[in-house]
Simulated scan of single mutants.
Amino acid sequence: MGRKRILNVSRRQVIRGLLATSAFGLTAKLGTACSPSGTGGTDAAAEGGASGSGDPLTIGFIYVGPKDDYGYNQAHAEGAAGMAAKFNWVKLVEEANVPETTAVAESMRSMIDIDGAKAIFPTSFGYFDPHILKLAEEYPDVQFFHAGGLYQEGKTPKNIGSYFGYIDEAQYVAGIVAALTSKSGKLGFVAAKPIPQVLRNVNSYTLGARSVRPDATTQVLFTGNWAEPIKEAEATNSMVDQGIDVVTCHVDSPKVVMETAERRGIFCTGYHANQAALAPKGYLTGAEWDWTNIYSKIAEDIYAGKSLQDGTIDHILRGGLKDGFCKVSDYGPAVSAEAKAAADAAKATLMDGSLVIYSGEVKDNKGGVVVGANEKLEQKDPKLEQMDYLVEGVIGSVGG
């Protein structure tokens, strides 16, 4: 990781020099972290196209970690590669291991000024404020799409879009599998930060588990950051020592949690991407992103001349299992026929809309009512994107 970061900084320094001398033509061959993907014939323009220009569309992707982390960054990178492979008019540029600092602003400027990117996908949560907000004002003709950022009409620049999936639906299903596999009824959740998207996953996982096993509990431990491998290992080991026999997580790379669980002889459910290879005995299932679908749709819209600026591309894009934003991992060898049947049934009702996860009465883990007895919070309800509580059955607190 250190080596890649040095390469990234070196490339930015070279680019600044090239900008000063106007030697733009050389930059296409510089560096490895932000080079065209080479997939799907992306260097060649399609004949015609809906826009009629026939010119390639350059799209940039920025990741906070490595593209092979078995987690958040890999899921986005696989989605970008899948999109680029579908369209020979897409030119994909990428940069990995970019921290949530002014470094991401430099990366975005590089992609726009040097590579000619017309759309940028800075994928990490911390890129949004202030970096994307600032760059969007500097480059009003470029479209910025952020995973999870909250677009506010009249406040957020119109060339910013927010996209995210209701992956808590897949977490709900995984919670059912976990509860029906666990012998103790004690589940564990290693989480990064207590932000709404993370809390929603913890809560949905627990609600899924308790829908089939009302006495099930979920111990949650927050590490404080997206990538804290030592703390993630310590949290997992601590959970095992407490008698927890199924763990999951919401961190950038679930690799450490999955491998630690397998080494300690307990079960696990994954997140972001498929981690079955990391825990061949104990991997039960997981909640995976399927970003290829949404990235392909956005690319097609831009190529057809649509934009965030004129409102022909929605500023807020959301979807769940039914919409192909996410999926449930294949079941592992330890999953019983009973657990598979219960999970499949829940998945079917989530997809047809008859199951609403946050349907009252729902209490928090302090005894307060957070969803009234006659209340249903559908997936698009803004209250869910402002979640600041843990539901009944979760052991832990938002404060740590």
Rank of each mutant, 00 (worst) to 15 (best):
G224V: 04
G324P: 04
A45S: 08
K281R: 04
K67R: 08
W226I: 06
V251Q: 10
S296A: 06
L19Q: 04
P130I: 13
H146K: 05
K158R: 04
Y163V: 07
I114S: 05
G54R: 10
Q74R: 13
A119G: 10
I302C: 02
W89I: 06
V256K: 08
V398G: 05
K91H: 09
E378L: 03
A103F: 13
D314A: 05
A334L: 00
G40S: 01
E378F: 15
T206A: 14
T181G: 10
F125D: 12
V142K: 01
I244V: 09
R5N: 02
S354P: 07
D115Q: 05
L377S: 09
I357G: 05
R264Q: 13
D301I: 01
G126N: 15
Y205T: 13
N293R: 13
I294E: 06
F121L: 05
L7G: 05
T21K: 09
L308D: 06
R210Q: 07
T312N: 08
G49W: 03
I132W: 03
N293H: 06
C249S: 15
A209C: 04
G282F: 00
K383V: 15
K376I: 07
A216P: 07
A277S: 13
A346M: 01
D43L: 11
I302Y: 05
K255Q: 11
G49Q: 03
I167M: 10
G396N: 05
Y166F: 08
H315T: 03
E259V: 14
G165S: 01
I176G: 10
A80H: 02
I195W: 01
N203Q: 04
I132D: 04
R3V: 12
G48D: 07
K91N: 08
Q74P: 06
Q152P: 12
S10T: 11
G282D: 05
G25D: 12
K193I: 11
G31Q: 11
G332C: 08
E338N: 03
V202K: 00
L30I: 14
S354G: 14
G185F: 06
P382L: 14
I15L: 00
P214T: 11
E153G: 04
V371Y: 09
H315Y: 03
D215P: 01
V220G: 10
G49E: 13
S182R: 02
L133Q: 07
A136E: 02
E138L: 06
G60I: 04
S35Y: 01
I114H: 08
T292G: 06
D68P: 04
G65E: 14
A227S: 12
I6F: 04
K29V: 07
V247C: 00
P382I: 13
R200E: 13
Y70E: 02
A277R: 02
L278Q: 15
Y389C: 05
P122A: 05
W89Q: 00
S107N: 10
T58E: 06
S53C: 07
A337E: 14
A77C: 11
S162Q: 01
E138I: 07
T101H: 03
V14W: 07
I15R: 00
A346E: 10
K306N: 00
A28L: 11
T218R: 04
V142D: 00
A235S: 15
S204F: 04
A216C: 12
K281G: 01
P56N: 09
K134P: 03
N88H: 14
T292M: 13
K67H: 03
V190E: 09
M258L: 15
P36L: 04
S253I: 13
Q197D: 14
D290A: 03
T312L: 00
G49N: 08
K231N: 14
M351W: 15
